[in-house]
Design a protein around this nucleic acid. Sequence first.
DNA 1: CGGTCTCTTGACGGAGTTCAAAGCTAGTGG
DNA 2: CCACTAGCTTTGAACTCCGTCAAGAGACCG
Lengths: 189, 189
Amino acid sequence: MCSALYQHINKFIDLNKDEQEVLASFLQSFSVKKKAFLLEQGQKCSANYFVVKGCLRLYFIDIKGAEQTTQFAIENWWITDLTSFLFKEQSEFFIQAAEPTEVIAIESHHYDEMFLKLPKLERYFRLILQKNHQASQRRIKFLYSQTAEERYCNFNHLFPEFVQRVPQYMLASYLGFTPEFLSKIRAKR
Amino acid sequence: MCSALYQHINKFIDLNKDEQEVLASFLQSFSVKKKAFLLEQGQKCSANYFVVKGCLRLYFIDIKGAEQTTQFAIENWWITDLTSFLFKEQSEFFIQAAEPTEVIAIESHHYDEMFLKLPKLERYFRLILQKNHQASQRRIKFLYSQTAEERYCNFNHLFPEFVQRVPQYMLASYLGFTPEFLSKIRAKR
DNA sequence: CGGTCTCTTGACGGAGTTCAAAGCTAGTGG
DNA sequence: CCACTAGCTTTGAACTCCGTCAAGAGACCG
């Protein structure tokens, strides 16, 4: 049921059968329909989500009413509003399925206990967070050094298959510009 | 010698005297003169740096030759080019002291060994990386929802004392615009 | 096939950049 | 402690990339 996660964990640390069973008691596995929400603005983000199959996105509504996508999570990535998840604050974000998605969730009230019972997982999540931090550093560098058009071409070149998976308006806001402008970039080729 | 770091660690986990001594064998503590470099473009980022006192910045030179500051680290923050640090790749970044700075460094060839000998630190670094991830999520949200002027006012409001500590051209690039434009924003008040 | 999303296109406007020159400031050495 | 210099900040004019708005064309789903 949660084997996709166990496989992912075992790329980073060794977790035996017994430990997997302990971990299972903290997990929930379920499906999310396309466009359904795992989090809405004003709610507390109750879980950290691991994508088994499909795609989730994290976004907020800006002051002008436009959706701004700040993060995508595809297979084998974790996604949550960390501040809301850790401190039980009201979130300013939405987490929505961009495709039909299978997820594994760790509820926040299990999170600390999980680390107490399975300290090995400290290392797994440290390594995951390191990957996130690398991705953030790379993203900021792209945002600060390239024009909108360059960012699109670059992203398209790096992740051609992913560009096909999401609507252009989500991609546009993720890359930091408007859907109209993305359309004009594409028209040039 | 490294007591500032021990104090910081003990905010998150308990590290006894013996463990502190083990840790000390992986650390180096030293001073960096203002404007001196801990990392230059093309080098491998050999260490992860903890700022005891002062201020470091991470920046790169963009295609037009302008410095783009992507991160600051003041007291009790860690800073490194993670990709270069972890994978011994040539860095595209510089790490420079924005003030006379005292740092504690963990060399990359000690990093894995440190976690083997002191697995408790997995938790400490997980928690640090969680803070970083929160900061990144907040930063992306600001970048995507506010104009240059709003970002400056907001930052100025949140960190008034820090704004005094660094030259405006560093702050401008950190906030994602040019020094000239920052000057014009300030002229309005 | 009907309605709702999504994408395209064009005209216009504005936030922020570029470039260059001049004015400041702070650090350095004599 | 003053003078000099290099680096930082300011200012203004011209420009450009990208946003906004609105209307229409496609595409997808029930």
